[in-house]
Design a protein around this nucleic acid. Sequence first.
DNA 1: CGTACATTATTGTCCTGGACAAGGGTATTC
DNA 2: GAATACCCTTGTCCAGGACAATAATGTACG
Lengths: 306, 306
Amino acid sequence: MTPPTDTAGLTLNISAVEREAGLSKDVLRMWERRYGFPKPSRDENGERQYSAGEVAKLRAIKRLMDVGLRPGKIIRGTLDELNAMADGRIVPRREPAAPAVEREILALLTSHDAQALQNALANLLMRQGVLKFVQETLSSLNHAVGDAWMRGELAVFEEHLYTEQVQIALRTVINAFPRQSGVPKVLLTTFPGEQHGMGLLMVEALLVPEGAQCISLGVQTPIEDIRRAALAHEVEIVALSFSTAFPVRQAGDGLAALRRQLPPKIAVWAGGELTRRVRKTLPGVTLVPDLSGTLGALKAWRALPK
Amino acid sequence: MTPPTDTAGLTLNISAVEREAGLSKDVLRMWERRYGFPKPSRDENGERQYSAGEVAKLRAIKRLMDVGLRPGKIIRGTLDELNAMADGRIVPRREPAAPAVEREILALLTSHDAQALQNALANLLMRQGVLKFVQETLSSLNHAVGDAWMRGELAVFEEHLYTEQVQIALRTVINAFPRQSGVPKVLLTTFPGEQHGMGLLMVEALLVPEGAQCISLGVQTPIEDIRRAALAHEVEIVALSFSTAFPVRQAGDGLAALRRQLPPKIAVWAGGELTRRVRKTLPGVTLVPDLSGTLGALKAWRALPK
DNA sequence: CGTACATTATTGTCCTGGACAAGGGTATTC
DNA sequence: GAATACCCTTGTCCAGGACAATAATGTACG
């Protein structure tokens, strides 16, 4: 029927592009109708066959949309122009902190020495302490890796390796803390559709040393089950993580629904890249757009009269 | 536009059902056309609104299809009948081994004591050793949890908690082994679309004690990147994991494509529930339909003349 | 009696092209 | 300068048709 993952990268069918670029089939067809891009060739059955170049440009567009640009504005640009825009956006980086560290880690990544990478991360973690490692180093490293990936300087598998190794480092440090009781109890998870779990681990790594007790459900928990889990585990806080790619609207709706279904005394925190783009205020939901806000939010919660 | 995660679980729109049941929009519409089920009501815009009952039945159908049944045969059944079929299927269980342990873990799960669950798993692991724990206990536990979930005895969030806790236990034991060099080097990952990573951890937990060096890329690596990673890291074996839900065809095509793109001296292993349903033989691909076959495959690989 | 092959049934994915609502952007008013 | 109304952009949904790939079944042959 469909050779979903193509032989060599020659052409991809619409399902494969949906996966690779993160754009629904409907959107791919609609863009073709409206903007004339992408304009895939057709196979003998009249089915769309996307070229590798089209997929690369689609990925670049998706990435720019995830930071707020609209498709109509950028879809005419060439791949180079889009990458330049991304670079331009990067210049005012929030963490001009440690480009040396970034370069070092990126070099280890591209040299494919998993062991050395693991050691380097563990080393950084030990020297800097959890707080600095997560809030500063990891935060800027994640951006550096994401940008390098988008510019084509980093392969997907190298990014995957990075993610795995960071998660191992974070899990190790989390496990190093005693896991008994703690206050507050925090439930960590993401909404359905959100596959990125690193944010959860980063938050957990910040909260556990402060004496909080974290219960993670991993990614993609339906809202109704978040509610039930919060009640069953008698948590005081429910913390959600959203990556840039998550649809803003879905996040807003979901948070409102969750807030409605939870008893008022259970706090709802929303963090991650996406929360920087949220316009309207969500009553009863604490937005934590920056990791450094996590501990502040915890302090504020503890200061509340109980 | 679309309230994707509904207020209280009253009705879901087609996108939400796609997520919740794991059936594409096209399939949902096609079934309605062909079989008359599901027959969602329509809102004022004529858009489908699925009831909670329909979604429950859809999930049951999906689960049965994942073990080989065809929709036409089962779509007429009631939810109870479908659940009975699932129970019937379970009777000839492969591991009549330790129902006591299963009951204990399930009880801990439904009592929502994360700490006790963690302890129980760690305890089992220590007492039984990695081999027995992974091959027997986890294997039958996974089935018990999956079945309990399908029968509605276990909530989604309880299943999520189980998965998280098991992964923590596995990662801990994997980390306990020295991670330096080792032979062979094994690359672990899954194809795009396959989100379940527990199989990878289970395999890693079996291989690492045997002196193999495992490099995991996590889930969902595009085939082209698996190839590049295998070459970059100079591995001897590429091991893929497939859960039941993965489309057989996509697995077969992908494995054939991967085999074609890799040099012959790099072995390709495919494991997981799905590989039990694979009919045709895939030349150059070692099928490991059962976890207990993992160590056999490793022994066979080591016996090969190099 | 089993195995290889051909035929039919079942099932999923893709196609076109139309409709519409929600959110962002812009102009107007106070 | 802030609030409101309007338009434009954009994504998702719908219907119904087509077809290819799998599974199931039947048939011929050793």
